[in-house]
């Protein structure tokens, strides 16, 4: 029982972590909380479901196209909606991301449909039985994807020119500009990464938890909570926050009642923010000016 609870908690947590990473990358590079982010996740799952159900497309081409579409969506959201905005007008930015989110939801409803869909799992075959717990293959895909994407993100940020530029922009926008780094280019890459990772989360989640046009808000809130919990701006924090949130929900649902799982995790979030306002991993930078 406990194993099973922990395993499903980690799986849900891994999804939350993937969503949280998108919030964090965009926030640290562009200083925008992208409230449309949950809709990228929804779109990933919906497009994947649509391609496999309606067009009978095999799993991997469908997943690749769904993720690609999310990358393009994210790029469009930034370029058309946010790029030319006044950087300091936060309310307008929030309104734009909210509006874009609602639009994406509406488009999914119109073009893909209102039905709840269960696209096929990535690999066929029954669950693995390990020490009294059962592990569906999709669970392994989810956790594996989180590991691979995190590693990729780490390599990008620390070992490539583009990534180092993004880090510099996230630490000090003005100084980065004076070093010849383009904040706009960093922002474009941040949004595309968020689209990629968010879209991937959507396709991974859909076979186990269904795809529905209305899922975006809830997924976005969970991912945002995970990002805040870990410390907005820290990719590692996003992962830790996501896993803790997933585990808390799963343990609450398993031992208390699934009715309380959201309440307990939100109380946990509030408690942690009272003690550590910067989040679990978020840094208070040493600064001297």
């Amino acid at each position: 029982m406990l194993y099973q609870i922990i395993l499903s908690g980690l799986t849900v947590g891994a999804i939350y972590a993937l969503i949280a990473i998108g919030f964090t990358i965009v926030f640290s590079t562009v200083r925008i909380v992208n409230f449309a982010h949950g809709e990228f996740v929804m779109a990933g799952g919906m497009i994947y479901a649509y391609l496999s159900a309606v067009h009978g497309m095999p799993v991997f081409p469908a997943v690749a196209i769904a993720i690609g579409a999310c990358v393009v969506l994210a790029l469009l959201v930034y370029e058309l909606g946010l790029a030319s905005m006044d950087k300091d007008n936060h309310i307008a930015q929030v309104m734009i991301t909210l509006g874009v989110g609602i639009t994406l939801k509406g488009l999914a409803q119109i073009f893909i449909g209102k039905d709840t869909q269960f696209p096929p799992a990535f690999s066929a075959g029954g669950p693995l039985a390990v020490g009294g717990a059962t592990i569906p293959y999709q669970m392994l895909w989810i956790v594996g994807a989180l590991a691979v994407l995190m590693l990729g993100l780490y390599m990008l940020l620390h070992h490539t020119r583009v990534g180092k530029g993004m880090m510099a922009v996230s630490i000090n926008h003005y100084a980065a500009t004076l070093m010849g780094i383009s904040p706009r280019r960093s922002a474009v890459i941040a949004f595309m990464l968020a689209g990629l990772i968010g879209g991937a989360a959507g396709t991974l989640l859909a076979p186990v938890a269904s795809a529905h046009y209305d899922n975006g808000i809830f997924l976005g809130i969970k991912g945002f909570a995970a990002a805040i919990l870990g410390g907005l701006g820290s990719p590692l924090g996003a992962v830790v926050g996501g896993l803790i949130l997933g585990l808390t929900e799963s343990v609450t649902a398993g031992y208390i009642s699934s009715v309380y799982k959201d309440a307990v995790s939100l109380v946990l979030l509030l408690a942690i923010l009272l003690i550590r306002p910067q989040g679990l991993i978020g840094k208070r930078l040493p600064q001297k000016f």
Binding site: K164, A168, I171, N172, A175, A176, M179, G180, I181, K288
Partner: peptide
């Protein structure tokens, strides 16, 4: 006000100067 990158190492700061 210098505007260095406080959470990067000294070496990383210097290297980023060659970005462009």
């Amino acid at each position: 006000g210098r505007q260095i990158f406080p959470s990067m190492t000294v070496e990383e700061n210097i290297e980023i100067g060659a970005f462009a």
